[in-house]
Computed example of a mutant assay.
Amino acid sequence: MKKIGIIALALFMQHISAQNNRFVYQVTMKPDAENKSDIKTENAYLDISAEKSLFYSENRYKRDSIIQATVSSGGGRGFNRDQMESLRSNINYSIEKDKKNQQITFKDRIGRDVYVYEEDRPLSWKISSETTKIGEYKVQKAETDFGGRKWTAWFTTDLPYQDGPYKFSGLPGLIVKVEDDKGDYSFDLMKNYKIGEIPALNQFGNTIKVKRGDFVKQQDKFKKDPVSFMTQGGGGFAQTRIAGGGGGITPPRGGGNRGGGNSGDFRKRMEERVKEEIKKNSNPIELQ
């Protein structure tokens, strides 16, 4: 009986160690360069397993779950527009960190396509001897320059992880708080708990693998001519497509749209809406 008890305990400990951990960060952003008083706040998840971590928006996860449930049920009456609108997110990207290869993979949508690149700029931290306490954790200060911003992070060795929100990692502990010196972006750890599997995020449309510099060029092209990306996809870029199945936005045929207009009216309205969204996101987290 004693031997069985020891085996059971060993299996239980193995099960606990195999569990994944979710760290919930409150992300505070000032995405509009011309209106810094417009502060956006939402939660994001940092899911950590033994092999990798994944950082993504809580709202995106909820939207994906609703879409998946609706599709699985055959569509039904479609989506609840108000519910989906309430789950809009300013964090449309996801970031995966591969622990074995020490590689950071960034994914974000431009128009109808999802672009993927491997981060090519290693973080160089300057660790200070300064310590304090944030919540229940004793934390230590570290600083870095990244993406055209100066960042201050506070990390703890109370937790057995060397990771953090967004692309931040490489410190001898988990980042509890990190913010830029202009106060435009901050990530604050709120809570953590055990989870099962790290979710596989839905990627609607084509997935295109590029270099980081080409992704930046595509973003610039999108800002100048967003509709070409929405209706044609890719903006004429030479791509390596690693997945397919996406379609662009198709204008209503004839007078079938609610306004009774033609596809030219639809294109104009779509262009105005997309350009307004771009204007409201004129202060990105990475400035260079």
Rank of each mutant, 00 (worst) to 15 (best):
G236Q: 05
L11Q: 08
P199T: 06
I208L: 09
K3L: 10
K150N: 15
M230C: 11
K150G: 11
M230R: 11
D38Y: 05
D225V: 02
A50G: 11
F222R: 03
R267N: 15
N92G: 14
K150R: 13
R149M: 15
Y166W: 13
K211A: 03
K138H: 09
G264W: 03
K217L: 07
V227G: 12
T131N: 05
G254T: 05
N192H: 14
E286P: 03
D220N: 10
Y56I: 00
S186L: 08
Y115H: 07
M230E: 13
T250Q: 14
D158F: 04
N101F: 12
S17W: 10
R269W: 06
R81T: 13
N202Q: 14
E130Y: 07
G135W: 09
D113Y: 05
P165K: 07
I39L: 04
M13K: 01
G244T: 08
L46K: 05
A69I: 09
Q19L: 15
T144E: 03
Q288A: 07
K279I: 02
Y193F: 13
M190I: 10
N206G: 14
F229S: 03
Q26P: 00
L189H: 07
R269P: 00
G196E: 08
G233C: 02
P165N: 12
A69G: 14
G111W: 04
N20F: 01
I39V: 14
L46M: 08
K224V: 09
L171N: 15
M190C: 06
M270R: 00
D265Q: 13
S86A: 03
S129E: 15
Q218M: 15
K275V: 07
F79A: 02
K100H: 02
G255Q: 14
N283E: 11
D120W: 01
F215I: 04
K36L: 15
N283P: 05
M230A: 13
I175S: 12
G244H: 05
G233K: 01
S53V: 03
S263R: 13
